[in-house]
């Protein structure tokens, strides 16, 4: 039983990172209707930049973490400005292809600078496990989970109360009406990409502290799809819950399959099997928008 509890807890932690990446994905989708296939590579870029600043440049971890955030803001701005803004008015499928291209470019750049080997972050937190629900858990796991939680709380407040948060939701609903309020929708698009880049790279840094990073990291972005499809493409709460659910589900199912059936790789595919099942039952996801209909 303790084995499954442990799987559950580590699933929650990995799931909280999926949630962050899904959050970025949903924000971009809501504001611009672009399906961003480069979300995982944005995470990877953040992870490598923080690695380079900490290990190669020898900065204290907190400093390089903050610099990584600044880098992500710039990355988001550049992507929006140089790649997506010229695509405004093009068919949505072309824009999606562009994000696929972007993911390859980011991967190539990372490979050029850092190669394909696994890189390891220095230990930032103590390694002595703490007890959670009677199970020993590494402090970095606890920190990762709390940080994700904190970020979600912050964004919830941002979208509920701040001028730009409300403007982003308005723009998501009706761009032209938002423009008529004096909301500069280009700024809103740029802001969406910035937020998406920042939350993803935070996910990347957390992962770097848990595992080690390599060039395959970007593939984690694919896990976003089951997460957001479960939660609903345009729901922030959905992104949070979807990410957590997928993380737990794949860990526990993977463990079960190994235990009972002796299947090794089930963990990797379980999320996608689940994806198909959800689509069959609830095509809008658990929290996705169905349009308000007044009779």
């Amino acid at each position: 039983m303790e084995f499954y509890l442990q799987l559950f807890i580590s699933g929650l932690v990995i799931g909280s990172i999926y949630s962050l990446v899904a959050l970025g994905f949903v924000i971009i989708y809501k504001a611009t209707k672009v399906v961003n296939f480069a979300q995982g590579e944005m995470l990877m870029a953040g992870a490598y930049v923080c690695f380079a600043l900490t290990v190669q440049a020898g900065l204290p971890f907190i400093a390089s973490f903050l610099l990584t955030l600044a880098f992500s803001v710039l990355l988001g701005l550049c992507i929006e400005r140089l790649i997506l803004r010229p695509m405004i008015g093009e068919p949505i499928i072309s824009v999606i292809m562009v994000t696929i291209g972007l993911s390859s470019v980011l991967k190539a750049v990372v490979q050029f600078f850092w190669g394909t080997d696994i890189r390891v972050y220095p230990e930032v937190l103590p390694t002595e496990p703490v007890m959670v629900a009677g199970v020993p858990v590494a402090p970095v796991y606890v920190a990762a989970f709390l940080l994700s939680l904190l970020l979600f709380a912050a964004f919830t407040l941002f979208f509920k109360y701040s001028r730009y948060g409300i403007a982003m939701r308005a723009t998501a609903f009706d761009q032209q009406a938002a423009q008529s309020m004096g909301i500069g929708i280009k700024n809103i698009f740029a802001l969406s990409w910035c937020i998406a880049a920042v939350v993803s790279s935070i996910g990347g840094v957390i992962l770097g502290n848990i595992n080690g990073i390599n060039i395959q990291l970007g593939q984690l972005g694919l896990k976003v799809f089951p997460a957001v499809i479960l939660g609903g493409l345009d729901s922030l709460l959905g992104a949070a819950i979807g990410g957590l659910a997928i993380g737990v589900l794949e860990n526990v199912c993977g463990g079960l399959a190994k235990d009972l059936l002796g299947l090794g790789g089930f963990r990797e595919v379980s999320a996608f099997i689940f994806l198909v099942l959800i689509l069959m039952v609830k095509p809008y996801g658990l929290f996705g928008t169905r349009h308000i209909e007044r009779v």
């Binding site: 308005a170 609903f173 928008t289 308000i292």
Partner: peptide, 10 residues
């Protein structure tokens, strides 16, 4: 604008 255009889910 014509047709009110309120933000319905706000």
């Amino acid at each position: 604008m014509e047709g009110r255009r309120v933000f319905e889910d706000l």
